[in-house]
């Protein structure tokens, strides 16, 4: 197993304007994040809103640069401020966003959505672009006939399949999934998670799965990295984090996640019955 994605001490600052006659402030969103991810594995990044998990996802996808620290893809150091991102590099790492209602352009047909990455990054001729897009639609559980439809004609789950198809068009090695199922209904969520697992097996993909839902993470991830206020508080295997969380904050997160547990329901019912009978 080789390490395909690695960060060393990555930091990111945002400058917030202070308003009229006030100095701008610097907010450090990431305080030195380091991790290494092996090929074919799934790393879940967990934390509350504002903990820097999406900032990290954007740095990994080469959308935003890090302020300091190194990002390594397949052992190669990448600095997008020094050199423009090459099409080869773009083809290695892609992203799926949280909300499929806003991540697809409503004026683009599905076919245009899927072929655009090929037009920008490759010299593949039009006929083959179309063939590849149609094949990809079938791979993600849609039909080739959907090529000429607009995003509004699809449900949320289908749109997320389109967004996943778009991310896979360049045959990436690494896929960043920024809360890919949190905007979806429970029944659709299961389908999309299954699809992602199927695709991972088929294309040998490496996933970085950003999420705040620990029950999904428990099912989906191999290793879990818990973040708080721009820092990693715990990074270990999935089994270890759920069986024996080391950090206080991880325990708080686990305790706060609602679970459908029969024994817990029984205890709660008994307590409520006693309370209302005494009243």
């Amino acid at each position: 197993m080789s390490v395909v994605l690695e960060t060393r001490n990555v930091t990111r600052d945002y400058i917030v304007s202070g308003g009229f006659m006030r100095p701008a402030r610097v907010i450090r969103a990431l305080h030195g994040i380091s991790f290494a991810l092996e090929e074919g594995r799934t790393l879940a990044i967990v934390g509350e809103s504002g903990c820097g998990k999406s900032t990290l996802a954007r740095i990994l996808t080469l959308i935003d640069p890090a302020n300091s620290g190194d990002l390594l893809i397949e052992g190669q150091k990448i600095d997008i401020t020094a050199r423009k991102v090459t099409p080869d590099l773009r083809a290695k790492i892609q992203i799926v966003f949280q909300n499929p209602y806003s991540s697809l352009n409503p004026r683009q047909k599905v076919g245009e959505v899927l072929t655009e990455p090929l037009i920008i990054n490759t010299k593949i001729p039009a006929a083959e672009r179309r063939a590849r897009a149609e094949a990809m639609l079938e791979k993600v559980g849609l039909q080739a006939a959907h090529y000429n439809r607009y995003p509004h004609m699809f449900s949320g789950g289908q749109r997320q399949r389109i967004a996943i198809a778009r991310a896979l068009m360049l045959n990436p090695k690494i896929l960043i999934l920024d809360e890919p199922v949190s905007a979806l209904d429970l029944s659709v969520q299961a389908q999309v998670l299954n699809l992602l697992k199927d695709l991972q097996d088929e294309f040998d993909l490496t996933y970085v799965f950003v999420s705040h839902d620990l029950s999904v993470v428990r099912y989906f991830a191999d290793e879990v990295m818990v973040m708080k206020d721009g820092e990693v508080v715990e990074h270990t295997s999935r089994d270890a984090i759920f069986a024996d969380p080391q950090h206080e904050y991880t325990r708080t997160l686990l305790a706060a996640t609602p679970v459908a547990d029969i024994e817990k329901i029984r205890a709660r019912q008994a307590r409520r019955r006693a309370l209302f009978e005494s009243a």
């Binding site: 996640t257 609602p258 459908a260 817990k264 709660r268």
Partner: peptide, 8 residues
């Protein structure tokens, strides 16, 4: 829509 919330 959250079965966990229902259970709790």
């Amino acid at each position: 829509h959250d079965m966990g919330v229902v259970a709790e």
